[in-house]
Design a binder for these strands. Structure first.
Lengths: 158, 158
DNA sequence: CCATATAGGTCAATATGGTTGACCTAATTA
DNA sequence: TAATTAGGTCAACCATATTGACCTATATGG
């Protein structure tokens, strides 16, 4: 096996281990709320796009509506999100974080922010930019990512 | 929200989308073999450390032995791995890929290699090095990663 | 105004992925 | 010989997701 192959194998391994570390802390934190990683993802995306509809949210996360429904209801029951009938079309339900939800989401994001920030600053240079560039290339093809960008743009224009 | 926070939120999102793209192709490829991502991980680590024992493998992947047992048996039944009683201690079972297993593993790794290599070369500069540095920092704390490094070193010394 | 489409909810069946606890055999070691 | 270790297996449980089918409410186009 040549050196490039070895390096690429290291990349595969690092992706596995890196992602595991990345999700570890929030996973532990939300345990005591009786929720899981899906719920965290939902909170994250609602925080980025307040007022997002159910359909848009499931397009972003790329799961079926049945898979989203239960976690969404659980978040509602735990008082972490609210659902508001849209006045421009009563079929749509708009999702928002409650104050409690905002607090939890920001705590979870904060932990991950700190973790990544510490690494980026300790490595210095343009490590952050380079890492982002690589991950953007991977994300480019995701339908969910495209949907997210479109909604973000819409939100800014309003 | 300040600019740094926004950038860090982008990082969180990119990790989710990036990992999804990264695992997408192998997931599709192994479907027709009737196996899943766990099996792929097992094949990957056996390929890196031929003759690894069951216990060492589960330390690396960081799952319970019960979670590893079924996939391991399935891989054996499909003729992708072999299990050999170790002659230095008959309690240990050493795992190897069969020719068929080697072929599949290399196909799966190849797809991911190409995917990452294309991104690294298209971005150029030291994007690969920088990306690896960041992921290494995240992986550093993983018990499974430490175990993997120790076994790799052992293997080289033999 | 009616037919159709859309947003969302829900039930059921199915599969996968993982956990912990308990208990077993075989082999090794103190 | 007793205790430990590697590995296997059973059971109960829980979470994550799928597809298919069917429902209501609302909106919209002919």
């Amino acid at each position: 096996m040549n050196e490039e192959e070895q390096k690429l194998n290291e990349v595969l391994m690092l992706f596995y281990f890196g992602y595991r570390t990345f999700t570890e802390k929030p996973d532990q934190m939300i345990e005591k709320y009786g929720i899981q990683r899906v719920h965290h993802r939902i909170l994250f995306f609602i925080a980025r796009i307040p007022g997002i509809t159910v359909n848009d949210l499931l397009s972003i996360i790329e799961v079926s509506k049945q898979a989203l429904n239960a976690p969404l209801r659980q978040l509602y029951e735990k008082g972490l999100i609210t659902m508001v009938q849209a006045d421009y079309d009563k079929r749509y339900k708009q999702l928002y974080l409650t104050e409690k939800g905002k607090l939890l989401e920001s705590e979870l994001s904060h932990v991950q922010h700190e973790q990544m920030k510490n690494i980026f600053t300790s490595l210095g240079g343009n490590h952050q930019e380079a890492w982002i560039d690589v991950m953007k290339e991977l994300s480019r093809v995701r339908p969910g990512q495209k949907q997210f960008q479109a909604l973000l743009k819409e939100n800014l224009e309003k």
